[in-house]
Design a protein around this nucleic acid. Structure first.
Length: 453
RNA sequence: GCGGCUAUAGUUCAGUGGCAGAACGCCGCUCUGUGGCAGCGGAUGUCGUGGGUUCGACCCCCACUGGCCGCCCCA
């Protein structure tokens, strides 16, 4: 026998027992984002490799070792925009979506309207990392970007606070418990470069007292030292210069305004001057929402920040912006872990039941049963139909596992047009004429009514 | 990309160098127009894949693949 094919490493199927939760999350996002004036954008999964090299940063881990990249075939005909000498082009499956959105913003000249652009996306991203809990090679992000020319107010700290306040509302609406907003400002690009050198210098004298990892990081990526989790290093790290003391006056004023607006909105946050983000384009405000349930060591549920120079890095007009990306897979893991906690507490099994199961009693009733099902489905009911070859006992067992009612359809019913209907919750059995059947089956909503239908 | 742990029935997991096991689930019967309960019976399977050691490997060794955890990093 030939070996069965499997989903490729780090990718997975989402089966019908999972998708209602995913749809609920996505619908909640769409509805909420729309209230803030966001419109949906869908960009290609495939982009020129150069987009990420320039946008995300050549030296970042994502670009230097985690992208699915290949050389597309050279074009034989040599016609079109790339000219007759068109060569093979390096293509990449997008590892994140901000660069693509900003590319589209530039390509469609959205800056020319002068208006602030508020765009959101939901879609798969790809990174060639080792799979772990909450980390997949194809993973989903729900993200949004606010971008526009400076005259549109895109630089205003109000936009930062609005994004953060919206995210807090989103997590609350989904019922995520125990989330934490960690907030920082990394200053302008120039601030960051300068601080990096200051940090490197400060690390020199204490380097030998740090853990092995940090001794290496002190050379390769000083900012990462701040993120160290080794307890013995904490005191040393605490004494290092903080980026908040080394950002420009402008950046400090901006950050204060963000915090004031958050406080006015009642959004709780924790200042984390050690918050380190891995993408080159971040400037000023950066943030992460973390959660303790269900994610193991991958406790970052979403992250984002300001990227005031990204448009220019990609060859566009000056257009400051701010955005975020939610790790949808991680959000789902968190919600599922919470549901399990709740189920343990209440003992109530989750589940979404159909309105009725139609049980033909002999194969002769099959056709009538399907016609009846069609009629009821047209009336908006969720219906499953059995098969007349099943024994009645089996029909009841299946019906009880799937639906709130069973509708019996035997010779009597076919002849009289009056159906025997039993409600499983109450055990009550009644005779209902066909004309009133749909109405009778509606009744109480199913247990899964908090899910989108 | 590196390190550790791991892979047995649909599921959760036992197991021993010498006949492949339990629970739950599934199917059948008791029970041919009334389910949930109970009793009885049944099938669970290339023991992840490929090599090697051995008279004999689910067990020991190697490689590969997947999963989990840690590192790196990120959502």
């Amino acid at each position: 026998m030939r070996a069965a094919l499997k989903a490729v490493r780090g990718t997975r199927d989402l089966l019908p027992d999972q998708t209602p939760l995913w749809n609920n999350v996505e619908t909640t996002a769409r509805n909420l984002f729309a209230r803030y004036g966001f419109g949906e954008i869908r960009t290609p999964v495939l982009e020129a490799t150069e987009l990420f090299a320039r946008g995300v940063g050549e030296e970042t881990d994502i670009v230097s070792k985690e992208m699915f990249t290949w050389e597309d075939r050279a074009r034989a005909g040599g016609e079109g925009v790339h000219g007759p000498e068109s060569k093979a082009q390096s293509l990449t499956l997008r590892p994140e979506n901000t660069a693509g959105v900003v590319r589209a913003y530039i390509e469609h000249q959205m800056a020319h309207s002068g208006a602030l652009q508020k765009l959101y996306y939901i879609g798969p991203q790809f990174r060639r990392e080792r799979p772990q809990r909450g980390r997949y090679r194809q993973f989903w992000q729900i993200g949004a970007e606010v971008i526009g020319p400076p005259s549109s107010g895109s630089e205003s700290p109000l936009r930062d606070a609005e994004i953060l306040e919206m995210l807090a509302g989103f997590l609350d609406k989904l019922g995520v418990r125990g989330w934490r907003l960690e907030l920082s400002s990394v200053g302008s690009y120039q601030d960051r470069v300068r601080y990096n050198e200051i940090l490197r210098a400060a690390l020199q004298p204490i380097r030998s007292r740090l853990c092995g990892d940090c001794q290496r990081r002190a050379e390769t990526n000083p900012l990462r030292v701040l993120d160290c989790k080794v307890p013995d290093d904490q005191a040393l790290i605490g004494a290092l210069p903080q980026i908040s003391d080394h950002i420009s006056a402008d950046s400090q004023t901006h950050f204060s305004a963000v915090r004031a607006a958050l406080e006015a909105c009642g959004v709780p946050y924790t200042l984390n001057p050690r918050l380190v983000r891995g993408l080159d384009y971040y400037t000023r405000t950066t943030f992460e929402f973390t959660v303790s349930t269900g994610l193991g060591t991958q406790n970052a549920l979403l992250g984002g920040g300001r990227y005031d120079g990204l448009s220019e890095m990609l060859g566009g007009p000056r257009s400051p912006g701010i955005g975020f990306a939610i790790g949808e897979d991680r959000l789902i893991l968190t919600l599922q872990a919470q549901q399990e906690e709740d189920a343990r507490a209440s003992g109530a099994p989750p589940g979404e039941l159909l309105d009725a199961y139609i049980a033909p009693l002999t194969p002769a009733q099959n056709a009538t049963a399907l016609a009846l099902a069609r009629e009821l489905r047209c009336a908006g009911l969720r219906i499953e139909v059995g098969d007349g070859s099943f024994k009645l006992r089996k029909s009841f067992e299946i019906a009880d596992s799937l639906a709130r009612h069973i509708v019996l359809l035997g010779e009597d019913e076919a002849g009289s047009g009056v159906f025997t209907v039993k409600a499983f919750a109450s055990g009550e059995q009644t005779k209902i004429p066909r004309a009133r059947l749909a109405e009778a089956l509606h009744g109480v909503q199913s247990r899964g009514s908090n899910f989108v239908q």
